[in-house]
Computed example of a mutant assay.
Amino acid sequence: MSQDDGLSADFIAKQRARLEQLQQDVLGNEENTVATERQYQEEHGFEAEESEDEAQRREQYVANQALRDANDQRIKDIRRALQKIDEGTYGFSDASGAPIPKARLEVMPEAIFTVAEQEKREAQR
Rank of each mutant, 00 (worst) to 15 (best):
I12T: 14
A103W: 00
T114N: 01
I78M: 05
E31D: 08
D10G: 07
Q21D: 06
D10A: 15
E119K: 05
K14D: 10
I12R: 09
V107Q: 14
P99A: 12
R121W: 13
E54P: 00
A98N: 06
V107G: 05
F113M: 07
F92Q: 04
T33W: 08
N32K: 12
N64S: 15
E87V: 09
D53N: 07
E42Y: 04
Q3P: 03
N29R: 13
F92T: 14
E87C: 06
F92M: 07
A111I: 06
E52H: 05
Q118W: 00
A123E: 15
M108N: 10
Y40I: 05
E52Y: 06
D77N: 15
I78W: 02
A63P: 01
Q83A: 15
S51Q: 07
D86T: 12
Q21T: 09
R104W: 15
R38V: 08
A66W: 02
Q60G: 11
R38Y: 05
L67N: 03
Q3S: 10
E43F: 00
V34E: 02
D69C: 02
Q60C: 14
S51V: 13
Y40N: 07
T36E: 12
A35R: 06
F11W: 05
E110V: 00
V26I: 14
T89N: 11
N64Q: 09
A9M: 03
R79H: 02
Q65D: 07
M1I: 06
Q118I: 00
Q65R: 07
D10F: 12
D94A: 13
Q60K: 10
K102G: 14
L7W: 05
V62D: 13
F11D: 07
N71C: 03
P101A: 15
T89E: 10
V26P: 08
E30S: 09
F46G: 04
E117H: 00
E122Y: 04
S8G: 01
Y61D: 04
T36A: 11
Y61V: 10
R125W: 09
L22Q: 07
E59T: 13
